[in-house]
Design a protein around this nucleic acid. Structure first.
Lengths: 202, 202
DNA sequence: CGATTGTAAATTGTTGACAATCTACAATCG
DNA sequence: CGATTGTAGATTGTCAACAATTTACAATCG
């Protein structure tokens, strides 16, 4: 889980790069993405660009229309945030309950590592990385269940969630919330872990 | 909503055809789908086939691995069905509550029409069509909200749900459950509509 | 002067070809 | 005889080119 990412295709790399640029706001909402320009930028043919755009469209980050290209979606819908939050809570709660009794020492090390990276991101105050590392911890929990359907549902929910770091005085507050989760898992305190997890998802 | 479907691209057509074949079991679980064979079968180039396969992979029906093609996924995960059912219930309940006070006479006509089609399918006993028409009614409710994020989340849940018609003595029981929803909407009885909707999602 | 038509450029959708990777099987080795 | 290597065919990933559609702007019409 902490192994370096190995890319098998050009598309994977482009998907990840564009996804990060959209999520970080580097590419503005409403902006059109041009296949040919992106192909020139990445130095590849349009094929994998099209694939990447299609994937990100399916993921919910982009919005496509036949013959008219794709646009970056306006951020997640405000109207459904309560439903998104609740859904995410239930998915992650389900995941944590499912894996709780099978957490290994290696799992704990992975969690600690993911948490440490999150701490570093919070200390740096790099919002892009904070978001990435925050979600990485939650993703770790969901993926540990080993059910592709669960992971896929979670992903579709997470891209539609408006993360709110403004509720913290400092980003390290967010780190502490996550630490509470990881510590409770270490102590084998199920109730505390679940409570900490849910408290973090607002 | 009852207007005929107009395809803008070859891909759209292929997506729909393949999706139906997968959902109906015509293409068996675990079976590999070959781009070149499908291209020959549909009489088109591999491009739109690739696009269609990628889309269906993102939808959760297929499973892809770089350089190794795609396979039809084993049906929805059993382990997460309770979560799927609950999630779907909450999404649809949210949708019905949201639209309840803005149902127009035209909306009611659409609902009646969708319901009539479902009744016909149940009478015919054509399971493929039953499923399709069953979901069409629920989809109508969700889409009526007019929030793309909500619809997308619902779609990702619905493909992971194992529909259970075996709980009925007859398919017409399922029709009657749906009729209860539509009738309650007609009577403007919110509580009854919500109860009927949830009773149908098991 | 607003509406309509025509045209060129930009862009997407599709096609066919080549490169890269995988699979299956035969031949060789220890 | 099991393990390894080599080869051919199948298949996917990518590329470049052509066809189809859209966009933007100028010219023409009423």
């Amino acid at each position: 889980m902490s192994s370096p990412v190995v890319y098998r295709t050009i598309r994977e790399q482009i998907v990840e790069q564009l996804r990060n640029e959209v999520l970080s706001g580097e590419i503005a909402e409403g902006e059109s993405l041009r296949e040919q320009k992106l192909a020139a930028r990445f130095g590849v043919s349009r094929g994998p660009i099209r694939d990447a755009l299609l994937q990100l469209t399916q993921e919910g980050l982009l919005s496509a229309e036949p013959n008219r290209g794709v646009r970056v979606c306006g951020g997640p819908s405000l109207a459904i945030q309560p439903l998104v939050v609740e859904t995410r809570r239930r998915i992650e709660r389900f995941a944590l309950e499912t894996i709780f009794d099978r957490i290994t020492a290696e799992d704990q090390r992975s969690l600690d590592e993911v948490l440490a990276r999150f701490k570093t991101a919070c200390e740096r105050g790099d919002m892009k990385e904070v978001v990435e590392r925050d979600l990485a911890l939650h993703r770790w929990i969901v993926e540990r269940v080993g059910d592709a359907d669960l992971t896929a549902m979670w992903l579709q929910v997470i891209v539609r969630m408006r993360l709110r770091y403004t509720r913290h005085k400092s980003l390290l507050d967010s780190y502490r919330e996550h630490k509470r989760i990881v510590d409770a898992v270490r102590k084998r305190d199920r109730a505390a872990a679940l409570a900490a997890l849910e408290a973090n998802i607002v």
